[in-house]
């Protein structure tokens, strides 16, 4: 039987490949977020939780074909710090915590420190409060997260992998911002041929408040990560 590959990529020219890493405590739902985002393009027969795992999805931003390469630790963070190879070449990062577990939010600072210690300085970082569907069990007020994001110059969204709330938005925001950064660098390089093109772009702080979107009518049954 032939494997159902991603037909969308056949014969399609890829303009950019952006590596984005998912980091955060264990069991905050990183893998579910990844599965939700990449579900239309990439279906694994079975879930392999071995080492670092990644999935890809090809998007269209400003008429450009952008391939998002999303890397997931797949539980590796439970044993030791994620290695620097995981961060190498990453242009974006999704820092995930669980809104029902205060500890996972308290650890965000540590994850941020590791990110800044290993990744590129200009990496685009999105703070994601997952499991927003469990509002009755909330342990992290949204104001706390907003304040932290403003202070640390991060993007912020609350998401629900279960109900597909803001997952697409979060990834698209990061990828679009990365695309803009890359485009600006190219523009600067074009405008000033003599310069090395290393202009330090001012990165504005954008707080994206989760909209009151109705959940998708086709509610997929997605079990919570253990």
């Amino acid at each position: 039987m032939s494997r159902g590959g991603s037909h969308g990529e056949l014969g399609q020219r890829i303009d950019y490949v952006f590596k984005v890493v998912l980091i955060g405590d264990s069991a905050v739902g990183k893998s579910q977020l990844l599965a939700r985002f990449a579900r239309n393009q990439f279906n694994l027969d079975s879930k392999a939780t071995i080492g670092v795992e990644f999935q890809t999805r090809t998007l269209n931003i400003d008429a450009r074909n952008v391939k998002a390469q999303i890397w997931d630790t797949a539980g590796q963070e439970r044993y030791r710090a994620v290695t620097s190879a995981y961060y190498r070449g990453a242009v974006g990062a999704m820092l995930v915590y669980d809104i029902t577990k205060r500890q996972s939010f308290d650890h965000v600072a540590r994850w941020l420190e590791e990110l800044r210690g290993h990744a590129d300085k200009n990496i685009v970082i999105m703070l994601m409060g997952n499991k927003s569907d469990l509002g009755t069990l909330r342990a992290v007020p949204i104001e706390d997260a907003k304040e932290f994001a403003e202070r640390e110059n991060l993007f912020f969204m609350e998401t629900s992998a279960l109900e597909a709330i803001n997952v697409e938005n979060a990834f698209m925001t990061v990828l679009t911002e990365i695309y803009r950064t890359v485009s600006k660098k190219n523009l600067v390089a074009n405008e000033e041929p003599d310069s090395s093109g290393n202009s330090s772009l001012l990165k504005g702080t954008k707080i994206v408040v989760p909209g009151q979107e109705p959940p998708s009518t086709l509610k997929a049954t997605c079990c919570m990560s253990s």
Binding site: S46, A48, R80
Partner: peptide, 24 residues
């Protein structure tokens, strides 16, 4: 076969991760 392979490799991965934890 793929599941068998993945399960076996997963076992090897778990053993390795536990080893890493001990060394750390």
């Amino acid at each position: 076969a793929k599941q068998i392979g993945q399960a076996s490799i997963s076992q090897a991965s778990s053993a390795r991760q536990k080893g890493e934890e001990m060394r750390a």
